[in-house]
Amino acid sequence: MSFDLLLIVDSIPKMLVGIGLTFELLVISMVLGTALAITLLLMRISGRWYLVAPSVVYIYIFRGTPILVQIFIIYHGLPQFEFIRESIFWPILSEPYGCAIVALTLNNGAYVSEILRGGVLGVDRGLLEAGSALGLSVRQRFIHITTPIAVRLAIPAYSNDVVSLMKSTALASTITLLDMMGIARTIVAETYAPYEIFISLAVIYLVITWFIQKGFGLFEQRMSRYVRKEA
């Protein structure tokens, strides 16, 4: 059993063709997911039960079930219903690409919402009291005091989440999408060379992870430049 280097050299470019799709899935889901997360967060901390309850239930369901199941429900499950097939969303939901984005967005939104909430909870209460004492309204305190500090606090967890999201994009291959993982699986099916293909694919993912972590690390450094590190 040999380690076929030629195969690796041949396959890497083929897999990299999928990198565009991988990134599209990653970036679009991240952006939409974060927007959803902010909405969920605002609902969660609004204090009004009719906003808090749906938000809590949504987060609970999407964090409590496997993302693969969520993908299957959206891609395989929704077409079961006629009203879906006839709705305006059908062009999106009939395509694996659309379904993957919807599923990743809905799932990621729940996780990021909790991460942002962690950041919000981490803001020192004394700072908010100072804002109150100065006469700032609830909205003003949230925008000028809570948000900048919460964002900085949330960066490490958020960057981990982006890495997780990138790993989840590989699941799009289970609904026929030809991202890097999808292409890799087809190559393996033809060549019976799981080691060469999957290991090189893993290396590609690791490189991407490295870039993501470095990027966020720099961002965090910049945001923290005036904060004294606790000894």
Partner: peptide, 14 residues
């Protein structure tokens, strides 16, 4: 840093 699916496929098929 590696997708879980990838790890499982590699271990199983490998």
């Amino acid at each position: 840093g590696t997708p879980e699916l990838l790890v499982l496929l590699l271990i199983y098929f490998g």
